[in-house]
């Protein structure tokens, strides 16, 4: 009899203890995922008060809450996409995880390289566009980005690329003629134009002529162009080198109006050459056989 009373008493004690523990550990109800910037609510089953902790990419919130009531989380508190940890503590603490997903794409980051590209170069132009929502989260769900390509003197063309993990990239050959190349990336209402310059390539068929003027010789190049006929821009350096009995003389002079000009004094036979970057031009032998 005594044994039965003891056993019953122990069982009742354990039951009461379990019930008491259950009453101390809060149970959190929260959505599994929400869209960035959208308010949502969490609720904690039970009675009494506790402390809510919300940790996210930009947030570390600590707040006193009442159990049994909905606790609102403002959209501004969940605007950064990522995994949020919600912890509620009373006597013990319980944690739940909410995934905040990016909102709809609203902005584009667009990089177009290089700023100056030599003409007629395969795969020389490359663009990378990244889709962001209004809260600067990368939008991972696939979207279609349209690249509108306008090269000076040519028809406009379009290319559509689907984003992968928020990124869309393309490559194209530079055009044969120098001038501007404008590429506009568009997604939904967002549009980002970029302009780069297509510039002449290396000098091609570099030639100079020499004319005497008193005790000096004036050297002038033909209009300096690349192999597609694009003139090299003014300011590009051309090197003239003269070797004669007095030694070697050099001058680096910039192109002006498509040509480069230099003057040397000569004493006896001389050998004169011209170069632009790593491209060599013709050689002139002056005053000798």
């Amino acid at each position: 009899m005594l044994l039965r009373i003891l056993t019953s008493f122990c069982g009742l004690s354990f039951a009461l203890l379990g019930a008491h523990s259950a009453a101390q550990e809060p149970a959190i109800t929260a959505p599994k995922n929400v869209t960035a910037g959208t308010p949502f609510a969490i609720s904690v089953v039970g009675q009494g008060k506790g402390t809510l902790y919300l940790f996210g990419p930009t947030q570390a919130i600590k707040r006193e809450i009442e159990f049994g009531k909905d606790t609102p989380i403002a959209g501004s508190e969940a605007s950064s996409a990522g995994i949020y940890q919600i912890t509620v503590c009373a006597a013990d603490c319980v944690t739940k995880v909410v995934e905040v997903q990016p909102a709809a794409p609203a902005r584009l980051g667009f990089l177009l390289h290089p700023s100056r590209v030599p003409v007629s170069t395969p795969n020389a132009v490359n663009g990378t566009a990244i889709a962001f929502d209004q809260y600067n989260n990368i939008v991972i769900t696939p979207s279609e980005i349209t690249f509108r390509i306008a090269a000076s003197g040519e028809k406009i063309s379009e290319k559509t690329v689907r984003t992968v993990r928020g990124v869309a990239a393309f490559q194209m050959d530079s055009r044969p003629n120098q001038g501007t190349l404008e590429v506009t990336a568009s997604l939904a209402t967002a549009s980002e134009p970029r302009v780069i310059q297509q510039v002449a390539s290396e000098a091609c068929g570099l030639r100079m002529t020499a004319a005497p003027s008193g005790a000096t010789i004036t050297l002038q190049t033909d209009p300096i162009r690349d192999c597609k006929g694009n003139p090299l821009p003014d300011g590009t350096i051309v090197s003239f080198i003269k070797v004669d009995g007095a030694g070697k003389s050099t001058v680096d002079t910039p192109i002006k109006k498509d040509r480069a000009i230099a003057q040397f004094s000569v004493s006896g036979p001389a050998r004169i050459s011209v170069a632009c970057g790593v491209v060599l031009g013709n050689e002139i032998t002056w005053g000798g056989r």
């Binding site: 902790y53 940790f55 940890q85 912890t87 290089p114 990378t128 993990r165 990124v167």
Partner: peptide, 23 residues
């Protein structure tokens, strides 16, 4: 993803983390 000009690289990271939060 590694852009053609080398200016951007995208990575997928699977991290093994133990995270403890203290008040």
């Amino acid at each position: 993803f590694y852009s053609a000009d080398g200016g951007e690289m995208q990575l997928e990271d699977e991290a093994q983390l133990e995270v403890r939060v203290f008040d």
